[in-house]
Simulated scan of single mutants.
Amino acid sequence: METRTVLIVDDSSGDRLVIRRAFERTRRDIKLVELIDGEELVDYVERKIPFKDVVSYPEPDLILLDINMRRLDGKQALKLLRSKPEYTDVPVVMLTTSSREKDINESYEQGCTDYITKPENFKDFMQAITNVCAYLDNPAAAAT
């Protein structure tokens, strides 16, 4: 099976660490690329410096996107991402602390594939990441 690329877009280094550890435990062939906010995500998809090298920064197969970030938040980044034809079918999972109905509804309106409130403990976080891996196994299902 080929290596799959997952972008983790979250301004919390602690949350990125937990997500990384959860993916490592899945024992899947995944390249994780960590970005700190929506502006870096936009730079990545637009191939701006330092993301020009497609070998080091391949096209993502899945994007995990936090909402509450400085500079450009997740909902704004999602809107920009979905405006690019080459990113309309890439699964984007909002992985955030917000359980506000307004954030959930707006995220789906902007085109997120799924919305997950960050679990409180590692066991539940591990289960959430395992569930998210289904989008890597069947990307066509994410587009429906």
Rank of each mutant, 00 (worst) to 15 (best):
Q110N: 14
I104F: 02
S98A: 05
T97F: 13
D114R: 00
F122S: 06
T117L: 04
K123T: 11
Q110R: 10
S99T: 14
Q110W: 05
S99D: 14
D103Q: 07
R100M: 13
D103L: 02
I116G: 06
E106V: 11
C112L: 04
K118R: 09
C112Q: 02
I104G: 06
D124I: 00
L95S: 04
T96S: 03
E120D: 15
N105Y: 15
T113V: 01
I104S: 03
N121W: 03
Y115F: 15
T97S: 15
K118I: 09
Q110D: 11
E109W: 06
Y108N: 04
E109T: 02
S107H: 02
M94N: 07
D124G: 04
S99E: 11
I104E: 04
Q110T: 06
N105Q: 13
V93C: 12
Y115A: 04
T113A: 06
D114M: 02
E106N: 06
N121D: 15
N121A: 08
D114K: 00
E101H: 09
T97V: 13
K118F: 07
S107L: 02
T113L: 07
C112A: 07
P119Y: 10
F122L: 08
F125V: 15
I104W: 03
Y108V: 01
K123C: 03
G111K: 00
G111H: 03
T117E: 09
Y115N: 03
E109P: 00
D103N: 08
E106F: 08
P91D: 09
P119G: 07
Q110P: 03
T97L: 10
F125W: 15
F122T: 11
I116M: 12
P91H: 08
D124T: 00
D103I: 15
N105R: 15
K118V: 05
M94S: 10
T97M: 13
T96E: 01
S99C: 07
T96Q: 02
N105E: 13
S99K: 14
F122D: 04
D114E: 08
F122G: 08
E101V: 13
Y115D: 05
F122V: 10
I104T: 02
G111R: 01
K102W: 01
T113F: 03
D114T: 00
P119S: 14
F125P: 00
T97D: 13
D114I: 00
T96R: 00
N121F: 08
S98C: 09
C112W: 03
T117K: 05
C112K: 02
I104L: 03
F125M: 15
N121E: 12
E106H: 05
V92Y: 10
D103S: 05
E106S: 05
S99Q: 11
P119E: 10
Y115R: 04
S107G: 11
D103K: 05
E109D: 10
K123Q: 14
E106T: 12
S98E: 15
T96H: 05
N121Y: 06
E120N: 11
D114S: 02
T113M: 09
P119D: 12
Q110L: 12
S99M: 08
T113C: 05
D124P: 11
S99I: 13
